[in-house]
């Protein structure tokens, strides 16, 4: 129940400062754990106290073992349950996920220098890129605007095997709020990006593709919920 276990420190974004993810739920369970620990310590102390007192009135000492065991078991179960809940609430959402904070949301028609490749947020073009399949590289500044609308941008290194590329195309055709485009110079064959989050993959059939889509398509990170992914820029 240490601070390290509760908090997920995230990587530095283009703004420079690291963000710490700490949900209300986890903070609550932390407090609960502390108060339980306090309670069980009190319970133990009370037991001892009674133990001494009972010797005074001549009660058989063995009787206290039952209460020690009773409170011990209850404390153990309670601590285990709270630890389980805390782990459930804090387990890393997706293995290998990188998160970035302090992303600007300004509009500009000038080129923007992004800290991540591909970018996961920051200032962007006033026109968003329409969702869908593209076979040419997109302008970062337009695609970042789509991320702001809750889209997931799937990028691949040119030369991805045809079977994998077809799988990615099918995913984008079957799911709203997704874009697909080649991106030369990626440091892994496939990179999935959402506003503030990124996942690097080697294979299109990695089950984390679906996990990423479920978490981030119009997900909680979306800076402009409800904004559309159509009627923007239709060409690369």
């Amino acid at each position: 129940m240490s601070k390290g276990a509760r908090n997920r420190t995230t990587k530095t974004g283009d703004g420079g400062s690291a963000k710490t993810a700490k949900s209300g739920k986890s903070a609550k369970s932390g407090t609960a754990a502390k108060s339980t620990a306090g309670k069980s310590a009190l319970g133990g102390g009370g037991g001892k106290g009674r133990g001494r007192a009972s010797r005074g009135v001549g009660l058989p000492q063995e009787r206290n073992w039952g209460s020690y065991i009773f409170y011990g078991v209850i404390s153990l179960i309670a601590v285990a349950a709270i630890a389980f809940a805390a782990i459930q609430a804090n387990k890393p959402p997706i293995d290998g996920l990188e998160e970035f904070g302090d992303l600007k949301q300004g509009h500009t028609t000038s080129p923007v220098k992004y800290a991540q490749t591909p970018p996961v947020g920051g200032d962007h073009d006033p026109t968003w890129q329409n969702c869908g399949v593209y076979d040419k590289q997109l302008r970062n500044e337009n695609a970042v605007h789509s991320l702001e609308h809750g889209a997931v941008w799937i990028t691949y290194r040119p030369g991805l095997p045809a079977a994998q590329l077809n799988k990615l195309k099918q995913i984008v055709q079957s799911n709203d709020y997704t874009l697909l485009s080649p991106y030369p110079g990626l440091d892994s064959p496939i990179v999935l990006s959402a506003w503030g989050s990124q996942l690097k993959l080697d294979d299109a059939s990695d089950p984390r593709v679906n996990e990423f889509l479920k978490m981030f398509v119009q997900g909680k990170q979306t800076p402009e919920p409800g904004a559309l992914c159509s009627e923007g820029k239709a060409t690369p």
Binding site: T36, K39, G46, S67, I74, A78, A81, I82
Partner: peptide, 16 residues
């Protein structure tokens, strides 16, 4: 103490 223990146990189970 017994009642409190049972309560804590029940709350923990409900939470899980």
């Amino acid at each position: 103490f017994t009642a409190a223990g049972i309560l804590v146990l029940a709350a923990a189970v409900a939470f899980v």
